[in-house]
Write a protein that binds this DNA or RNA. Structure first.
Length: 429
RNA sequence: GGAGGGAUGGCAGAGCGGUUGAAUGCACUGGUCUUGAAAACCAGCAAGGGCUAAUACCCUUCCAGGGUUCGAAUCCCUGUCCCUCCA
């Protein structure tokens, strides 16, 4: 949600900025609705004022024992007028909200112009992709040798699910543990356990609803009808974690809040038929360790750099080659003002693939969620900035480890930092 | 499964249907006092919105949504969450 001040006072700027990310909306219609809203809101409030004053007068008259009949006469048709005005205002407000909630965030000035992911700009490369002197396998072939089973998962659930058994299952757990330990012990995040089913308000807060419901798994309680009961499986821990502070006013001394959470993530992957059908890259259910920070608005872009480095730190410790990319305006997510993607080298695909996405949302989510702080300078309640990033996507990290650490005999070497989590073994044979 | 009790400002906690947006305490902010601090005393202190050059003023909000009423924190209904008891 953009600032209403901006929408009302500087709509041309908004339109121009949104054009950068290929989003256009009907300014004339919006302005028309806004103008109507003003008029009707003033009318409604005047009527409410009238009712309040009259009612008070009746109260006073009654207290002093006067006849209140004539006064009652005066307000006889007020109720109906007020109801009409209120419902007109309400209809208008719903229409305006619908438009406003569908407007994406404005890109930060430092975000490069572009149409699609092809226009994203590589900022740096770290590590050298390893040369293999034998015929490479991808994680699917290697995984089948060590306990990854897509066929069984298809029987249990369907496509885009997986069953992992044995050492690789443990390796995934080791990766998770390692990431959580590192972020809590070294980077100062607070480990957080959260619900995996969330209500519509939470998803509206972070921006997945109302626009992207098709990307989500929606549940309903057995025998229950109606939207109010619907819960959704989380597409990322960002949703429950950021919503921890929904509707709160934080103290300056509490900031920044730094949460790390490991959760499964559930995505319908509607619209991605045929993409990444092989392997673990694109699943309906996958594990992720998520970093979330709630920051003072003044230094949120420093926080974005820091948070991205925290994610990069995991890749470095795992000695996985990666590159850092800044998303162009056309590829930026709906709620984000600026996003860095980290892409890990996958020898099986001979390509860099996204393993972390780190974003600053500025006040976009905070306004939807009413996340505020008392600014000690202004003494006002002001919106905070929210940020998050994967630290990392565990399923994809497992893929990266399997492929980058493979040996000629099909065995997989355990990265040094994980050996302690794997009972000291150095290889999965 | 059934029966009760509760939800009020940052926190605790009052609140006969009528100047109650809400007593009081704590916390917080400013001031007096003090060499400084504490204590004491005085004052201030909810959020969102409208209108405005800005004050002023106005509207909304006492869990949520409906209802009764000229008027609802207060009465009624539904829901959510918390607590107690019974089977």
């Amino acid at each position: 949600m953009l600032e209403s001040k901006l929408l009302r006072g500087n709509i041309d700027f908004v339109v121009e900025q949104l054009k950068r990310r290929n989003f256009s909306f009907d300014v004339a219609e919006f302005n028309k609705l806004e103008d109507q809203r003003k008029v009707i809101q003033v009318q409604t409030q005047d009527l409410q004022n009238l009712r309040n004053t009259k009612s008070k007068a009746i109260g006073q008259a009654k207290a002093s024992g006067e006849n209140i009949e004539p006064l009652l006469e005066e307000v006889s048709d007020l109720g109906e007028k007020l109801d009409n005005a209120k419902s007109a205002l309400n209809d208008l407000q719903l229409k305006i909200d619908e438009i406003v909630m569908a407007i994406p965030n404005i890109p930060h000035p430092s975000v490069p112009e572009g149409q699609s992911e092809d226009d994203n700009i590589e900022l740096l490369k770290w590590g050298e992709p390893k040369k293999f002197d034998f015929e490479l396998k991808d994680h699917v072939d290697l995984g089948e040798m060590h306990g990854i089973d897509f066929a069984v998962a298809a029987k249990i659930s369907g496509s885009r699910f997986v069953v992992i058994t044995g050492k690789l299952a443990k390796l995934q757990r080791a990766l998770t543990q390692f990431m959580l330990d590192h972020h809590t012990e070294v980077n100062g995040y607070t480990e957080t356990y959260v619900p995996y089913l969330v209500n519509a308000d939470s998803l509206t807060g972070t921006g997945q609803l109302p626009k992207f419901e098709a990307d989500l798994f929606k549940t309903r309680l057995h025998g229950e009808e109606g939207e109010a009961k619907a819960l959704y499986l989380i597409p990322t821990a960002e949703v429950p974690v950021t919503n921890i502070v929904r509707d709160s006013i934080l103290k300056d001394s509490e900031l920044p809040l730094k949460f790390v959470a490991h959760t499964p993530c559930f995505r319908s992957e509607a619209g991605s038929y045929g993409r990444d059908t092989r392997g673990l890259i694109r699943q309906h259910q996958f594990e992720k360790v998520e970093l979330v920070q709630i920051s003072n608005p003044d230094n949120s872009y420093d926080v974005l750099e820091e948070l991205t480095e925290h994610a990069e730190g995991i890749l470095k410790l795992l000695e996985l080659p990666y590159r850092k990319v800044i998303l162009c305006t056309g590829d930026l997510g709906f709620s984000s003002a600026k996003t860095y993607d980290l892409e890990v080298w996958l020898p099986g695909q001979a390509a860099y693939r996204e393993i972390s996405s780190c974003s600053c949302f500025e006040g976009f989510q905070a306004r939807r969620m009413q996340i505020r702080w008392k600014n000690p300078q202004t003494k006002e309640s002001e919106f905070l900035h929210t940020l998050n990033g994967s630290g990392l996507a565990v399923g994809r990290t497992l893929v990266a480890v399997i492929e980058n650490y493979q040996n000629a005999d099909g065995s997989i070497t355990i990265p040094k930092v994980l050996q302690g989590y794997m009972g000291g073994i150095t290889k999965i044979k």
